[in-house]
């Protein structure tokens, strides 16, 4: 990567709060789920930023908010130099050409009544880039080729494909508009183990070939670490640590990152036998009533008094990494 890499996406203090309503007749807001609560990060051109965390940490909501597919409560999203936070729906359309999404569920995200050629080509039609029939067919064929599918598959329907092939169709659709940023939300977690590697490799090949930038969202830290250049670890709506993939494993700073790494078994009995097994207790608290101070303090093995009252700010650390923990005050 060059010394001053171009920033493709800047997210500043992003908050997404969902209102919680109660009452059948007199509906009123009784609270809010702070799904994303003050998240900031940059994504550089050509890199993969991994967003990892357990359910309810806000990783998927962050992805949807960046695409403006849900309402942003506050904060700022700057994409390719343009502040898109306040851009309305109509003006988002040309911007969306540049940022696309690949979904988790390869079964639910493809319309079963559409042929593969229609699914992959639909973005071209929506954005008025379809051209004449021959050009359209050629474009679809080249997109299918790019993701390792055969041209004669264009006339088939999604049910004729396996999970891995369907995910390839989803990737081809995301590539149709030549985006610069693709947000991948758990793109391999529904796939069989032996198929995951095929799709992970495809993502990497396409990135190298087309210079794409990815945000890769997943709960499986081993997969995220494999594909990402940098990783942001999230917990209950906040980022607790951002580090390069090498540092994150070698020297995790935040106690939650340490706990997450310790929880994941390594597929080697000899390594496992010699690994200290420090498993943290408890479960993730409700995002409707997050703990005050550091949100991890209820489960943290190194909790101090200050953690229970004061929110630790994101602190820059040597080596271009950052951590939000009072241990590093």
């Amino acid at each position: 990567m060059p010394s001053s890499p171009e920033i493709v996406l800047e997210v500043r203090d992003l908050r997404v709060h969902f209102p919680v309503m109660a009452g059948a007749v007199m509906r009123k807001q009784v609270g809010s789920v702070k799904a994303v609560d003050g998240v900031s990060f940059d994504v550089r051109r050509g890199e993969t930023l991994g967003l990892v965390g357990e359910s309810g940490c806000g990783k998927s909501t962050t992805g949807l908010a960046v695409l403006k597919m849900i309402d942003i409560t506050s904060g700022q999203v700057v994409f390719e130099g343009q502040d898109i936070t306040g851009v309305d729906r109509a003006h988002m359309r040309p911007i969306r050409r540049r940022m696309q999404m690949v979904y988790q569920d390869p079964f639910g995200s493809l319309n079963p009544r559409m042929k593969v050629s229609q699914i992959v080509g639909e973005p071209l039609e929506v954005h008025g880039l379809a051209g004449n029939r021959a050009a359209y067919n050629e474009r679809v064929a080249s997109l299918l080729d790019m993701v390792g599918l055969l041209p004669d598959m264009a006339d088939r329907y999604p049910h004729e494909f396996s999970g891995g092939q369907r995910q390839r169709i989803g990737i081809a659709r995301a590539l149709a508009l030549e985006p610069s940023l693709i947000i991948c939300d758990e793109p391999v977690s529904a796939l069989d183990v032996s198929i995951q590697a095929q799709v992970v490799n495809l993502f990497q090949e396409i990135q190298e070939r087309m210079g794409l930038t990815y945000i890769f969202i997943a709960h499986d830290l081993a997969v995220v670490r494999h594909i990402s250049h940098r990783i942001a670890v999230m917990y209950l709506g906040r980022i607790v640590e951002i580090a390069s993939r090498a540092e994150l494993y070698k020297e995790p700073l935040h106690p939650y990152t340490q706990a997450l790494l310790a929880a994941i078994p390594i597929p080697d009995p000899d390594v496992e036998a010699s690994r200290p097994q420090q498993i943290i207790t408890g479960e993730v608290p409700s995002a409707m009533r997050p703990p005050p101070g550091c949100r991890f303090h209820t489960r943290c093995p190194r909790v101090m008094d200050v953690c229970k009252t004061e929110t630790p700010p994101m602190r820059e650390m040597p080596g271009g990494r950052a951590v939000a923990c009072h241990l590093y005050d």
């Binding site: 183990v193 032996s194 198929i195 995951q196 590697a197 095929q198 992970v200 490799n201 990497q204 830290l221 081993a222 997969v223 670490r225 494999h226 993939r245 090498a246 494993y249 790494l261 994941i264 390594i266 597929p267 080697d268 390594v271």
Partner: peptide, 18 residues
């Protein structure tokens, strides 16, 4: 075994899929 990423692996290697 060759197709799954391992946490303790050098980052940046290619997986060998089935």
């Amino acid at each position: 075994m060759a197709s799954i990423p391992r946490l303790d692996q050098e980052a940046g290697q290619r997986l060998v899929p089935i």
